[in-house]
């Protein structure tokens, strides 16, 4: 069994565990490469049809190409797609034009997600984060409880040994489930290539620039790159000296912003 097979099989096992334990389950789809890979793994786990809703938290600040991609593949993959926004905040004019990135992100992503979880009564949501993205994410569990006020108790995480995961959400609590936690950015691209997973064209270089990570348009910057196909992206990643999320503004503002965002419920 090669490395990609091992990663894939571990993820499928976790996805099936999650579905067995939590029927009120949803998978978050940000339309990026990681969560699209996660959807692909879900389709493998359930033989083509994902038996729970796929949720997109729409900040309304995404790239046009991302919305097109969402509509096209949601139909093709026969997804039960939920699109959720923090409409109240948007109505109040909260956004990247008027607020700093931390506030806009918190309101339009985290609070939007909190509202959606309450609205649908989800007990667990799957999120496509990876350990190699950020030091804080490297500390995560596969099944990670969030308290009634969506806090992540990172100082007292549950023991998780031999794939024996927690399974009961206490009243008000929900679980974050991380099926691709053990993958690296390079693994994801090598798997996308092997499987032929459809991927947004924003990742491919145009006029010497490409997006390495996709977030909200106003705070996501492209990197200098001539990688206009998957092979070139893989080559680029093998030699790069910059971090994956370096194009994302909210990570850099403060050394501990990511920890703060996560403990407040950010994905």
């Amino acid at each position: 069994m090669n490395h990609l097979d091992e990663l894939e099989n571990k993820s499928i096992y976790i996805i099936r565990e999650a579905y067995h334990r939590f029927k009120d389950l949803s998978v978050l789809w940000s339309i990026g490469k990681d969560s699209s890979t996660m959807l692909w793994l879900c389709m493998k786990a359930f033989f083509g049809k994902i038996p729970f809703p796929v949720m997109h938290i729409d900040t309304t600040y995404k790239f046009e190409e991302m919305y097109d991609f969402r509509e096209h593949w949601a139909k093709k993959w026969n997804l039960n797609l939920l699109i959720e926004k923090n409409q109240e905040a948007l109505d109040k004019g909260i956004g990247y034009e008027n607020n700093d990135a931390f506030t806009a992100c918190h309101e339009l992503k985290t609070i939007a997600l909190q509202k959606a979880i309450l609205k649908h009564g989800f007990k667990a949501i799957m999120v496509g984060i990876r350990r190699d993205e950020h030091g804080i994410r490297a500390k995560e569990r596969y099944f990670s409880p969030r308290s009634i006020d969506f806090k992540w108790d990172y100082k007292n995480q549950p023991a998780e040994i031999w794939e024996q995961f927690k399974k009961e959400a206490v009243k008000g609590e929900h679980f974050r489930i991380h099926p691709i936690l053990h993958w690296t950015e390079l693994d994801v691209w090598e798997y996308i290539k092997r499987e032929g997973i459809p991927i947004n064209k924003l990742y491919f270089a145009k006029n010497g620039k490409r997006y390495r990570s996709l977030g909200c348009k106003p705070i996501t910057n492209p990197i200098d790159s001539n990688a206009d196909d998957i092979d070139k992206i893989i080559e680029e990643l093998k030699t790069t000296k910059t971090a994956e999320r370096s194009g994302r503004a909210q990570d850099k503002e403060q050394a501990y912003t990511m920890q703060k965002l996560r403990s407040l419920g950010y994905m």
Partner: peptide
Amino acid sequence: LLDSLEEERKDNITIDTTQIFFKTPERD
């Protein structure tokens, strides 16, 4: 590089387990 939590850095202790990816020509 490993101790990313604020408390870990301030107090010079490792609280939780973490993972990091490391490559050599022979093996990852």
